[in-house]
Amino acid sequence: MFQAFFVDPFVMIYDAPLFFVEVLVSGLMAGVMYALVALGFVLIYKASGVFNFAQGAMVLFAALTFVGLWELGVNPWLALILAALVMIGVAFTIERVVLRPLVNQDPIIFFMATIGITYFLDGFGQTIWGSEVRPLDIGIPNEPFMDLAEMTGLYINKFDVFSAVVCSLLVALLAGFFTKTKIGRALRAVADDHQAALSVGIPLKTIWTIVWSVAGIVGLAAGILWGSKLGVQFTLALIAFKALPVLILGGFTSIPGAIIGGLIIGSGEKIAEVYWGEAMGGAIEDWFAYVVALIFLLFRPQGLFGEKIIERV
């Protein structure tokens, strides 16, 4: 027991450091993908104070729409634009039908409403597009860089690098949007207090539609990347459960938190699975991220980048 937990894994790492680097890199890349899903959560939480449980469902729905349109013979670029438009439509509908009637309710009510949206979107997407697994190939080969492999012996996957680049671009764009634009400031005001924001003339419904649309489009990106890895199917919606520990680790309101949290969880999870998984009975990915996040929270309840809250009475 002791041997399996505290000796063997380190011996393995020591014996094959290159393999460790590979595991680490592939973990980091997976982490970027988690971060992308977590980003959708953060956007909506930051801008409306709503914990959007439906982000996973939005990822699935966006990917289904994209693949569905493509399969119907639509040009992929057009399909991408159409899918983005559909996600804007979804955002518009959610704002109109769900959020607007609930203004000023408790956050927990919003949270539960988004669970309702999750169920609806999961069901709706599969009713329209069916529930079979659809392979998705966006033309980025899922193979290592051979030159690099020959030179150093390191196997780094091209697709992983591609998705990391896409994620970084998105993040940079969003960070700029939040900090540099007027809308970004309005968003933060809304997150703080619905009524107060309304009273200073911030158009709540426009803001909500915008931010849910952005989250929907981020979901589309995540859906396409994950979809080309796993195939577009129902399990995509479950990716949300991977993003949640990232969130509590990084803090609900922090974009850098989502990224760094994603990287920590992604690499930690991979390393734990490869080196300790066997000793613990396998498939520890299911809960490992949660346990890491929890242990972390015990020491820093506000998350990595969350602000310490001073409570007043």
Partner: peptide
């Protein structure tokens, strides 16, 4: 799937 949809809609 329809059950899912109805569930979700009802919750909301």
């Amino acid at each position: 799937h329809i059950e899912f949809m109805v569930f979700g809609a009802l919750i909301v």
